[in-house]
Measured scan of single mutants.
Amino acid sequence: MSIQHFRVALIPFFAAFCLPVFAHPETLVKVKDAEDQLGARVGYIELDLNSGKILESFRPEERFPMMSTFKVLLCGAVLSRVDAGQEQLGRRIHYSQNDLVKYSPVTEKHLTDGMTVRELCSAAITMSDNTAANLLLTTIGGPKELTAFLHNMGDHVTRLDRWEPELNEAIPNDERDTTMPAAMATTLRKLLTGELLTLASRQQLIDWMEADKVAGPLLRSALPAGWFIADKSGAGERGSRGIIAALGPDGKPSRIVVIYTTGSQATMDERNRQIAEIGASLIKHW
């Protein structure tokens, strides 16, 4: 068994979910400061990975656009189908120029040979490839089937209604394609530690997140040497930005962190900087 497989195998399969305990108010002060700096709502939650206990939260039950963070949930649904014998990671999917949508850096290079389901999930999570996400959504039956998958695992909040790139529209008070920080954190924890997926599929999902190549300016920029992070970022219209992550010291994950913001006029660089500063405070007061 590899070190990575050993790491995931040791994560307990508890489903406990406790009331908020504000253990590190310094980080919450930074979250509130980020709201002021961005002129926007910021949602934040931090869960203990083992117990599910809420360590910190701010606007945990307010809706925020999911943006590309939904791609982790999508690949979780795909892996669930693989575990059930309904899908194969090695199955090759062919597509055409007409299937390509905005921001598809991986799929646009494989119009001739197509891509396997495994490769599409990797592209969707590590590079946030939008066409890969749409092709994967098609394999499970579309956005409503992803919502149904989430409902079946106990998440009655998170919903996907549209395809890429329309799902990033982020209209105020529009519940389409949204989640809440508390719901997303709990669902991510179930996918990474629960019995919904096999150990091999849980390991595959966290491996894809660990290999994320487009979230460098966010939490990763604040991470000390030797820390572990597996994450997925998202960006949308109307100043929307977000990240979901499993992270921790000593090379293994010990907490789930979810950060969303929407409604800002700030630049992407400024949104990234504020999320990175929240991450720096989190690590400082770990």
Rank of each mutant, 00 (worst) to 15 (best):
A15Q: 06
L146Y: 06
K109S: 15
P65H: 04
F22L: 12
A225R: 13
V214L: 10
L38V: 07
A200V: 12
I243H: 01
K213S: 10
V78T: 06
A225P: 08
E87I: 09
D177N: 03
V117C: 03
F6G: 06
D129V: 00
I244K: 00
F70G: 07
P65R: 01
L197Y: 06
I283D: 03
S80N: 14
T198I: 05
V42M: 12
P143C: 06
R59C: 03
I244M: 10
T158V: 03
A235C: 02
K30E: 07
E35A: 08
V82F: 07
L137M: 12
C121L: 05
G114A: 07
S221E: 12
G76S: 11
I256N: 00
D83Y: 01
G90C: 10
P165V: 10
A185Q: 09
N173Y: 13
T186E: 15
A200P: 15
L47G: 02
P253S: 11
N134D: 03
A215G: 10
L73W: 02
W227S: 01
A77T: 10
N152Y: 11
A235T: 06
R118T: 07
V29G: 15
A170C: 12
G226C: 09
V8G: 07
F228I: 08
T178Y: 01
E56V: 08
G248A: 02
Q37L: 14
A183D: 08
S240M: 03
P65E: 02
D269V: 14
G226V: 03
A215S: 11
D174T: 04
T138I: 08
L135Y: 02
L191Q: 03
T158F: 06
Y44R: 00
G236V: 01
I283M: 13
S240F: 02
T69P: 03
E87K: 01
L137E: 02
K252T: 08
L79I: 04
G251I: 07
K109R: 10
N168I: 04
G242V: 01
T139A: 14
D48N: 05
E61R: 15
N152D: 14
S221A: 11
I283S: 05
E277V: 12
L188Q: 02
I45G: 02
R81D: 05
A183G: 08
E166T: 10
I125C: 06
L89P: 06
P224T: 06
A222D: 09
T187H: 05
L197S: 04
A200D: 15
L218E: 01
W208S: 02
D212C: 04
A16V: 15
K32R: 13
K213I: 15
G239S: 04
L223A: 10
R7V: 07
L219C: 04
T178M: 02
T179W: 00
P224N: 04
I256G: 01
G242D: 00
V8S: 15
H24R: 12
P249S: 08
I229G: 01
G248E: 01
L188I: 13
E87V: 09
S2C: 08
F70I: 05
L89F: 08
R220A: 03
P105S: 06
I283V: 03
R63C: 06
E145R: 13
F64M: 05
L136F: 00
L19A: 15
G226T: 10
P65K: 04
Q88H: 14
R220P: 02
D269R: 11
N130D: 02
I243N: 01
E166K: 11
D269E: 13
A183H: 11
A15E: 02
L136C: 03
D83A: 04
E87T: 07
E164G: 00
T158C: 02
A215D: 01
H285Y: 15
Q97T: 09
T186G: 15
S254R: 12
T126A: 12
E145V: 13
A15S: 15
P181C: 09
L79V: 05
A185S: 10
T178E: 01
W286G: 01
L160Q: 07
L89T: 04
D99V: 12
V78Y: 02
K144N: 14
G154S: 09
I244H: 00
T147A: 08
G52V: 03
I11V: 14
L160F: 10
Q86T: 15
G242C: 07
A170H: 11
T267R: 12
Q97W: 13
P224Q: 06
R255S: 03
R63G: 03
K232V: 00
L120V: 04
S264M: 05
R41Q: 08
S254D: 15
F14S: 01
R63Q: 10
V78L: 08
A133V: 01
A124R: 00
D174G: 05
A15R: 00
R241A: 03
F228V: 07
V101G: 08
Y44S: 00
P253N: 09
V42C: 08
P224H: 06
D212T: 05
V78W: 01
D174R: 02
D99H: 09
P165T: 13
M115C: 06
D99G: 07
L73S: 07
L73Q: 04
L218H: 02
W227G: 01
R81A: 11
M153Y: 11
V82M: 06
L89E: 05
S221P: 10
K32E: 13
T69E: 01
V31G: 01
E175M: 10
Q88F: 12
I11A: 08
L55H: 09
R41S: 08
A276D: 10
P65T: 03
A183E: 12
V257L: 09
